[in-house]
């Protein structure tokens, strides 16, 4: 379902972190949110997912405000994943059970898909950073979300882990899952993006198709950012 964001604003400790932001995000494909540090990318994503509530404005999913049943169709992979103090498999099973999936075989399938099957019975908190992030993605995917958020989920990972995650993202996107992803990795954005939302100082500066954004950005800020010259 398409997302309609209508002039949302969020102020914290007298700082306007999201400033009159409006946009429409299509219900398919991979949308990428870019912008310098502190632009409000993560916070905007948290607003979309309902983890943060804007002071004013509205976010509508197919004309409906966010409610628990819409939220249950979404998953969010955090920049630093929260790992339950359990085994890898138990982490996955906990999430699966929240969505009424009781068959352990399904969990096993997702572990294989993210190259974690050999670690199923290992304590999850002792995994490496890349393994943890893959586990977080497995937990997100097992709920079969219609909308998947990723908040800089591949920063600090090695190329092999990044590749595994990107392959999975492309395949679920093809099968109809909408993906919204925050990243600083221009290469990754170029590989994955269908459209790009560029944020700066809490404002949406530019929202265009990926090809347009990377070849010929409209705003000066986006041009500077892509050239590695934009500082906050």
């Amino acid at each position: 379902m398409p997302i309609s964001v209508q002039s949302i604003t969020l102020t914290l400790n007298d700082r306007r972190l999201i400033d009159d932001l409006s946009c429409t995000i299509k219900s398919a494909g991979i949308s990428i949110i870019m912008g310098p540090n502190g632009a409000g990318k993560s916070l905007f994503m948290r607003c979309l997912h309902g983890l943060a509530i804007p002071d004013s404005g509205a976010i509508l999913y197919a004309d409906k405000p966010l409610n628990p049943s819409i939220r249950k169709q979404q998953s969010l992979v955090f920049q630093t994943p929260t790992i339950l103090r359990r085994t890898v498999l138990a982490n996955l099973l906990f999430v699966a059970r929240q969505r009424g999936i009781d068959d352990p075989a399904i969990s096993g399938e997702y572990l294989r898909q993210l190259r974690l099957d050999h670690l199923a019975h290992h304590p999850a908190r002792l995994l490496s950073g890349g393994e943890k992030q893959r586990l977080a993605l497995a937990r997100a995917l097992i709920t079969k979300p219609t909308l998947l958020f990723l908040d800089e989920a591949t920063s600090n990972l090695d190329p092999a882990s990044i590749e595994t995650i990107e392959i999975n993202l492309q395949s679920v996107s093809k099968r109809g899952t909408k993906i919204i992803l925050v990243t600083h990795d221009v290469g990754q954005a170029k590989r994955l993006a269908d459209d790009v939302l560029f944020l700066h100082h809490g404002k949406l500066i530019e929202h265009s198709k990926a090809a347009t954004f990377f070849k010929n950005p409209k705003s000066a800020a986006a041009r500077a950012y892509l050239a590695g010259k934009l500082v906050l």
């Binding site: 997912h49 939220r71 249950k72 998953s75 955090f78 929260t82 929240q98």
Partner: peptide
């Protein structure tokens, strides 16, 4: 540690 994850999952 857990609250955002649980909130996101609607636990």
């Amino acid at each position: 540690d857990y609250k955002d994850f649980f909130d996101s999952l609607v636990v």
